[in-house]
Amino acid sequence: MTFKCSSTPQQLDDIRHLGFLVNVPPKMTKFVRWIPPLHGLMLNIDGASKGNPRPCGGGGIFRDSNGNVSMAYSHYYGAGSSIFAEVRAMHDGVLLAIEKGFALTSICSDSLILVNSLRIGVVPSWDCYRWWRPGLDFVHLHGVPVNHIFREANQVANALANSACFMCCNEVFCSSKQLPRLCLPALLGD
């Protein structure tokens, strides 16, 4: 029999006392953190939706190999799903990279659905095709890898996306000093 929640030592002793063998698998921990690019700029993106569909927004941050912020953005998209917000956040980041002439060496997202859709070339949802396709074209044209990262390593982009949902506006930040207060703990943690 397998239990979904962990048992206390007293409960385990009671089970053993009844004659059952208790096998407790060891818990594996994994250290997760943001890892800077070796060279060039990395774009971390994230989308947030406060229900499906509900108010959603996206955010992204461009950082160099020293962790310095080149630019960040926080955009509100109105009502939409979480994948819609993820795709729009990537699209907005790609447009900013093109506009500012940033040479991206990688794009990182905690959305495995988005990352896999770009790898195999299949749109995750037809309602976001018009924003997904330019991102796919950019990735293929410039040879920029799109990597999946754990949510814990994407906290600044997550904070920017949540800020967009709460503030209901579009903002672009040109330095780390301009970032919303919500983002500062995550930036310092990186």
Rank of each mutant, 00 (worst) to 15 (best):
H148P: 02
G93C: 00
L43P: 03
A157Q: 02
G57Y: 03
R16V: 11
L12Q: 09
M90T: 05
E99F: 11
G60D: 04
I83V: 14
T2W: 12
A159Y: 04
L38D: 01
I120P: 01
D46R: 02
M42F: 06
P37M: 02
Y76R: 02
G19T: 00
R133P: 00
K50C: 08
G101Y: 11
L104N: 06
V24E: 11
L136G: 09
G143H: 15
V144N: 08
S125C: 15
S49Q: 05
G78R: 13
H17E: 13
A72H: 05
L182V: 08
I113W: 05
L112M: 12
G51S: 14
V24C: 10
V94Q: 05
P37I: 05
F31W: 12
F138A: 12
V122E: 15
V94I: 15
C5A: 08
A48C: 15
H17N: 11
L95H: 11
G189V: 00
L18C: 10
W34G: 01
V122T: 15
Q10I: 07
G135S: 15
V123Y: 10
G51M: 10
F102Q: 05
T29P: 03
K30H: 07
P124H: 09
G67L: 06
W132R: 05
Q10F: 04
L41S: 04
D13I: 05
M28F: 10
R181S: 12
C169G: 11
E99W: 09
L18H: 07
L188Y: 08
A153Q: 02
A48K: 05
N116L: 00
E86S: 03
K177N: 14
V156Y: 06
N147D: 07
N66G: 14
N23R: 09
V172H: 11
C169L: 14
W132V: 01
I98K: 14
L12I: 12
A159E: 07
N66Q: 14
D110L: 04
G59C: 07
I35Q: 06
Q178N: 13
G78L: 14
F84E: 10
W131D: 02
Q155I: 01
K50L: 13
L112H: 04
V156G: 03
N170I: 12
L118Y: 02
M28N: 12
N147L: 15
Q11G: 08
G80A: 13
K30T: 12
F62S: 00
A79V: 14
S106K: 07
L136A: 13
I15N: 06
S111Q: 10
G135P: 07
P53N: 11
F62G: 02
W132E: 00
N52R: 08
I83Y: 00
R54K: 09
G93S: 08
S65N: 15
S82L: 09
M28H: 14
A48F: 07
A72D: 06
A85K: 10
G93T: 06
V123T: 15
S7F: 09
L188W: 01
R181C: 12
S81I: 06
N116K: 10
G143P: 12
I98E: 15
W132H: 06
H75A: 11
N154C: 01
S117T: 00
M28L: 13
V122Y: 13
D190T: 12
C108R: 04
I35D: 08
L41N: 03
D92M: 07
V69Y: 10
V115I: 10
Q10T: 10
N154F: 01
P185Q: 04
I107Y: 01
N23D: 09
D127N: 15
